[in-house]
């Protein structure tokens, strides 16, 4: 099926980065390796390389974001690209201008790469299908579907601490149902060979037939954390309370919040991750967030290297191939 290969050009090189699903292990490892080579640049006096000189990267954000947008911007600038930040509040698209209109307008300005965040699942795929052949699309989060660069940041962080993927038990705790980060992590972990992926949440926050994603489902935090190497905590959105998916933050923290006591159930060298920003006292206790097992701040600093890696890889795709039509 053509669309499965929408992300790749005819030489099977990365053309767009829309989802971690369906990409081969080698390609994911290449992203991690490339990011590794960029981390040294971050420590140089001159933090720039000329790989994207003369290219224009557009950060097209239909949904508010500070951290993701900033790291994409920094990544682009370190690759010597020109960066255009466009924030489109949801209200603007309600005024009749469609996503396609916005896209056509930007294309007229001869941009080379779109970094897109949108509140609807499938938005990045949609843009990749309808943009000009020379443009690459990077998904910076679409609805509840995917957030592939965040997932790769997390894979990068895990690899730095745990050499091998194929021996790991990884637990993802929280709102799996609405989490694009979780979906992208699950696909990446499973492609990289993690044999035991667990999701832990009450049934209201677990998607239908979750096990079809290749995960083990737990509703009890103690059972789910037993012997794991990696714990990934997800952010809990406040609106989950108003839509009757949860009774209160208080009860959520009591049952699913990560405390020192709960952490003791995992392996002694467990690492704790969170895509941020953290609701302290809701998802996890401050003592854990700032504790010795936490790698949360490392995740943030890895963000730039991963995004540089993906940007440089997609910009090298074969311009004359890979388009559907």
């Amino acid at each position: 099926m053509k669309q499965q290969h929408l992300q790749l050009d005819n030489n099977k090189r990365l053309r767009h980065f829309l989802t971690t699903e369906g990409l081969k292990r080698d390609l994911l490892v290449e992203i991690l390796d490339t990011a590794e080579s960029f981390t040294s640049i971050t420590h140089q006096q001159v933090k720039k390389v000329p790989l994207l000189r003369g290219k224009t990267v557009v950060n097209l954000f239909f949904e508010a974001s500070t951290r993701t947008r900033t790291t994409f911007e920094l990544a682009a600038k370190r690759l010597s690209a020109d960066v255009l930040n466009i924030n489109v509040p949801a209200s603007a698209t309600n005024k009749g201008e469609t996503l396609l209109d916005t896209l056509r307008n930007l294309e007229a300005m001869h941009c080379d790469m779109f970094v897109v965040r949108h509140q609807n699942s499938g938005a990045a795929h949609f843009i990749a299908q309808h943009c000009a052949p020379h443009v690459s699309v990077l998904n910076a989060g679409d609805g509840s579907h995917a957030h592939p660069t965040q997932a790769m940041i997390d894979m990068f962080t895990i690899r730095r601490h745990k050499q091998e993927f194929h021996t790991l038990s990884v637990a993802i705790v929280g709102d799996i149902l609405h989490s694009r980060v979780a979906r992208s992590q699950i696909h990446a972990l499973s492609t990289l060979g993690v044999p035991d992926i667990r999701v832990i949440a009450p049934r209201t926050l677990i998607p239908a037939e979750a096990s079809s994603l290749g995960v083990h489902v737990y509703h009890d935090l103690d059972q789910g954390l037993d012997g794991v190497d990696v714990i990934i905590m997800l952010r809990l959105q406040r609106e989950r309370m108003s839509s009757a998916l949860l009774p209160s933050e208080h009860e959520y923290f009591k049952l699913y919040g990560l405390t020192k006591e709960k952490l003791a159930l995992a392996k002694p060298d467990v690492i704790v991750m969170h895509p941020g920003p953290i609701n302290r006292g809701v998802e996890m206790d401050s003592s854990v967030a700032d504790g010795e097992h936490s790698v949360i701040l490392q995740q943030v600093s890895h963000g730039i290297s991963i995004r540089m890696a993906v940007m440089s890889m997609t910009m090298q795709h074969d311009l004359h191939s890979g388009q559907d039509t």
Binding site: S121, G122, D142, R183, E209, L213
Partner: peptide, 15 residues
């Protein structure tokens, strides 16, 4: 349809 596809694509499922 609420099922494997809604779960995979992160689209709201109609059960």
């Amino acid at each position: 349809h609420e099922g494997q596809i809604s779960t995979r694509l992160g689209l709201a499922g109609n059960p």
